[in-house]
């Protein structure tokens, strides 16, 4: 067991898993966030379909529709550039852990309404990639969540932050 942990630590110390994780997450968030910034009203309508907010809470709904796409773009850029990687990873992890159950619940609602097999359901979840198959979406989200968790817990290397301030964040 301790030998396996040691191997994982050595692998992590190379900085490669961290680099791959932040590039994959960074590009995914940049792409999905940018798609939403081009049509904020369309995104707002999709948020409304989740019925998370009561009609009188429209200011909060607007704030989410305005802030979330740009926050995703910002996180994507930070991850690609290697700035504040662990903090950004935590934000991304928080987003993934919030969105995935909500998307899952909405898919269950659609399944009940349309009487389809769960994996036959496809809808625009507001994730930024248009209409997607729910099972594929859940697999994708699970992968992105694991990558975000890796960024939070990993001992980061090969980042711009380390290059600029090596003493504060260097690998032990």
């Amino acid at each position: 067991m301790s030998e396996q942990v040691g191997r994982l630590r050595r692998l992590d110390a190379t900085g490669v898993p961290n680099l791959v994780a932040r590039l994959v997450l960074g590009l995914a968030f940049l792409y999905m966030g940018y798609n939403k910034t081009t049509d904020p009203y369309g995104f707002l309508k999709l948020i409304r379909e989740y019925q998370i907010f009561a009609p009188e809470q429209y200011v909060w709904m607007n704030l989410v529709a305005i802030a979330l796409p740009w926050l995703e773009v910002f996180c994507g850029l930070l991850l690609i550039a290697g700035i504040a990687v662990r903090g950004t990873g935590l934000v991304v992890l928080g987003m993934m852990l919030s969105f995935t159950p909500v998307v899952f619940m909405r898919a269950l609602g659609i399944q009940e309404a349309e009487q389809k097999a769960f994996c036959d359901i496809a809808f625009d979840c507001g994730c930024g990639a248009g209409e997607v198959n729910i099972c594929w979406k859940l697999v994708e989200n699970t992968g992105l969540t694991l990558l975000a968790a890796l960024l939070v817990w990993s001992r980061t290397t090969l980042t711009l932050t380390n290059a600029l301030a090596p003493k504060k964040t260097s690998v032990k």
């Binding site: 740009w70 926050l71 996180c75 930070l78 504040a84 903090g87 935590l90 934000v91």
Partner: peptide, 10 residues
């Protein structure tokens, strides 16, 4: 760090 990211991003 994550709070700063959220505030600046917003």
């Amino acid at each position: 760090e994550s709070l700063i990211v959220v505030v600046v991003g917003t």
